[in-house]
Design a protein around this nucleic acid. Structure first.
Lengths: 341, 341
DNA sequence: AATTAGCACTCGCACCTTCTGAGTGCTAAT
DNA sequence: ATTAGCACTCAGAAGGTGCGAGTGCTAATT
């Protein structure tokens, strides 16, 4: 792709900025008064025309101003936008908002997501700090009644999951059996590897003992599973409904997000630490009018969870990107600290 | 209020049934062909006119058919609708859907809510089995690192809450102190009574020891709090968006539900086991076009949590009410069994 | 060669009018 | 008490009109 002239760059980025600000197609006259450029509207029109042919701008209809295309946004993000550092006010909001949640990793991430919802007024999705390499660190079993135990799982990333289990009878022998099985088959293993299939293998190699503690095994598998599918949590979805960018199409975006599974593919497909997927760059047609910003945070050096923002392609990238970057880094740091022994 | 003639009752309930079915205002001719009545449309019109004056029906505009008023629905529910028992297919769906979740009370309730979302295609809200009288039954503290403990709270209703806490230093003395404080101030107390205010009282009577385990106390209060505000969980909210009954007003209902706190008042204001609040019977103006069905389930005889349905006033009460009643009873029974020692 | 003034042209949008038909209330006859 | 008949109402669809923002093109200017 040939390099754009400086003036074209200036015009393209101004159109995008102004459009992001107003939501209205940008005309040649309006652009001049916005930028204070000293050329005539006709010149701007000629330039815009060429930006049209290059695929960076388009007109909603013949007699309207210009609107950035997806490719336009892409060029803007890659070449024109200078990433600023986060502004002070936002930084303070984040710092103040996050501090009460420090301590429990999962809560911290959820708090961070809610902060982002407040800041952006878009939908945000957080995933808990679980990576491929998240290990099951500990299983606690505490009897709380003649037939009831509480089971707590702890992962290497500080996620706790608990539930009650019932056994017909609780006695030392059974617990001992479970402890043995758990020590050899669960502790230190990746949570993703503990599932019904792996249980069968265990059943096979352990023999009859296995069946006496079947409810416990099922509980472990369920808890490990609920940890491993790195539960996405949504927030702020209803914000999308009032955005005029979406018109009546917000519903399909919401439905898409609520399904969760497809969106987790979007997150997975994100390779960098902070990626922006514009419109159809997301392979899902429900997101064709949306931009997704996926920002991953790292715990002790390993990328583990993520915070994502879903909004219209007409999104204020310039201020949102520094915020989410700052927030993700902060979350990573705080969790790392909390786990640091 | 004077008793309605049999024919008026017949007409009123038919109008409501037909309107619930089609969503279109019901005209005199249409009503006759629906019911197979053997009177002329003029007669029906006269009757409808009187039902208008009585406040049971209204016309969206002069030349349209009739639509039930809120009062009309109320009369229908109170006097006309015969509550059927749940139909077999629905019963089977519920039975099959609920069984995998048995074991953990909180999960069970959430599963029940999701089932109801599927069945009704409306928004449903569940609250965990927490009542006024829910007590803190047990607090477990397990060290998992030199500075980290996991804390697990168990309530008398089988709800578990867990989180990690950090202490600068963990030693037997501190844990012992906590154990003492917790035994005298927390165990056996209502979870709702454990809050920042009560912590201050404790601090006062315990003295310096208190501050060495401050993070633990804060964690208890946070966990107890998150238990006590009987966390409402929403499901199916986006279903409301596609309902033509709401037009563009679904958003305000969603916003209302998402705030959660006001809706918990709606639940609290519900005195019976199964109450229907139609339109403005809910004191919140955001619900003026909605009906809320609040169904409470009982655990071991105490009403504890609830499952609610929020949808348009034009709701198929006749089939939904038996379903939610059956489901609530089932949930209550299953939890009672699970806790039964 | 680049820029600009001028101008005819386009087209979405808001506004108005007209038309249609479902459904009504009323009156007079049964 | 019921009903046939009829004039009336009114929301919503369909079609027409004018406005104005913004364009592309051409010819003149720098």
């Amino acid at each position: 792709m040939a390099e754009l002239s400086d003036r074209k760059k200036k015009i393209l980025s101004s159109v995008i900025e102004l459009y992001i600000k107003t939501g209205e197609p940008v005309g040649s006259k309006g652009l001049i008064s916005y930028t204070g450029m000293t050329v005539s509207s006709a010149t701007v029109r000629n330039e815009m025309n060429e930006l049209d042919s290059l695929g960076f701008l388009e007109q909603p209809h013949t007699s309207a101003g210009r609107v950035p295309t997806q490719q336009g946004y892409r060029y803007y993000l890659d070449h024109l936008m200078k990433e600023k550092s986060i502004d002070d006010v936002t930084k303070r909001i984040i710092d103040a908002g996050i501090s009460p949640a420090v301590g429990d990793p999962e809560r911290l991430v959820e708090r961070a997501r809610d902060l982002m919802v407040d800041l952006t007024k878009y939908a945000c999705i957080s995933t808990a700090p679980i990576g491929e390499e998240t290990l099951l660190r500990r299983i606690e079993l505490v009897p709380v009644g003649p037939h009831t135990l509480m089971m707590v799982l702890l992962t290497s990333n500080g996620i706790l999951k608990s539930r009650l289990c019932r056994l017909d009878e609780i006695n030392i022998q059974l617990l001992e059996k479970f402890r043995n099985i758990s020590d050899s088959f669960f502790i230190g293993k990746a949570v993703g590897d503990i599932n019904l299939a792996s249980l069968q293998t265990i059943a096979f190699s352990v023999g009859d003992d296995y069946f006496s503690i079947l409810p416990l095994m099922a509980a472990v598998s369920e808890l490990a599973g609920s940890t491993a599918d790195s539960r996405m949590v949504l927030g702020g979805t209803s914000n999308l409904l009032s955005l005029k960018d979406y018109g009546n199409n917000a519903v399909s975006v919401l439905d898409f997000l609520n399904k969760k599974e497809p969106f987790s593919q979007v997150i997975k497909s994100s390779k960098g630490n902070l990626d922006v997927h514009i419109g159809t760059e997301n392979r899902f047609k429900q997101l064709k009018d949306s931009s997704v910003i996926v920002s991953k945070y790292s715990v002790n050096g390993d990328t583990s969870g993520s915070i994502s923002i879903v909004g219209p392609t007409r999104m204020n990238y310039e201020t949102i990107i520094p915020s989410i970057r700052y927030l993700s880094d902060l979350v990573g740091e705080l969790i790392s600290q909390a786990l640091d022994e």
